[in-house]
Computed example of a mutant assay.
Amino acid sequence: MMGRFAALGFAVFLSACASTPTSVKTDFDPGTNFARFRTYSWIARPEGVASPLVQQRIVDGVDSRLQRNGWKLVPNGDVHVAARVTTSERQTANTSSVGYIGWGGFGPPATGARVDTYEVGTLVVDMYDGSRKQAIWRGSASGTLDSDTARMTALLQAALDKMFAGFPPGGAPAK
């Protein structure tokens, strides 16, 4: 009976680790009037991406969110957009106690340890005022990468949704 509860608790723990939410942060220059911007252009497409398909998903995702706010993609736009991706390996040590050994269930607990390695990716999107050549907005999203393409695409879209949820800062989107 006790083994079933331990197994259930371990399964819940693993599922909680597997669904770790993406951390999203944004920052902007409070002195910038975003309502005056109508166009944008890419000055740096996401580098550090292993696949050109993932790079295109990022660009398409940013484009769709900016265009939803009435911005148009043009050469040398009002706002210059740059994106980059970094990845790093992380490790976590997991220990578990499988119960007591010995006669009658008494004795020291039997424990085990395992080191899990996983990859964390960070997407950073920067925007610059094209005329002033100054940074005006930054969004970043970090999370555990998934080897399944469909899940990774869903995680990317959810991260971009969070990143652009309050965009543009300071008011309603320009139309």
Results as ranks from 00 to 15, higher is better:
M1N: 15
M1H: 15
M2Q: 14
A6M: 15
A6T: 03
A7G: 15
A7M: 02
L8P: 10
G9C: 12
F10Q: 12
F10C: 13
A11W: 05
V12L: 13
V12D: 09
V12K: 01
F13V: 03
S15H: 10
A16D: 09
A16Y: 04
A16N: 01
C17R: 14
A18V: 08
T22S: 00
T22R: 05
S23Y: 08
S23G: 06
V24C: 07
K25M: 10
T26W: 01
D27G: 08
D27A: 11
D29L: 03
P30G: 11
G31N: 06
T32L: 00
F34M: 03
F34Y: 01
A35G: 03
F37A: 09
R38S: 11
R38Q: 12
R38G: 11
T39K: 07
T39Q: 01
W42T: 01
A44M: 07
R45W: 03
E47Q: 04
A50C: 01
A50E: 06
A50W: 04
S51H: 07
P52I: 00
V54E: 09
Q55G: 07
Q56W: 07
Q56Y: 03
R57Y: 03
I58G: 00
G61I: 00
G61A: 08
V62R: 05
V62Q: 09
V62K: 02
S64P: 06
L66F: 12
Q67W: 05
G70L: 15
W71F: 15
K72C: 01
L73F: 04
V74C: 15
P75F: 04
V81Y: 10
A83E: 00
A83Q: 04
A83C: 06
R84K: 01
E89M: 07
E89P: 07
Q91G: 06
T92C: 07
A93C: 06
N94P: 00
N94A: 11
S97T: 15
V98F: 11
V98T: 11
G99W: 10
G102S: 07
G102W: 05
G102P: 10
W103D: 05
G104K: 11
G105C: 03
F106M: 08
G107K: 01
A110V: 07
T111Y: 09
T111P: 05
G112I: 01
A113Y: 06
R114M: 10
R114Q: 12
D116Y: 14
D116H: 15
T117P: 07
Y118Q: 08
Y118I: 10
V120N: 13
T122I: 10
L123M: 03
L123V: 05
V124K: 05
V125I: 14
M127W: 01
Y128R: 12
D129T: 02
R132C: 04
K133W: 06
Q134C: 04
I136K: 00
W137E: 00
R138T: 11
R138S: 08
S140N: 08
S142L: 11
T144R: 14
S147F: 12
D148H: 12
T149F: 13
A150Q: 13
A150R: 15
R151Y: 07
M152L: 14
T153R: 15
L155T: 09
Q157N: 12
Q157M: 09
Q157E: 15
Q157R: 05
A159Y: 00
D161M: 14
K162Y: 03
F164M: 13
A165F: 10
F167C: 05
P168D: 09
P169W: 11
G171H: 06
A172S: 14
A172Q: 13
P173L: 08
A174Q: 11
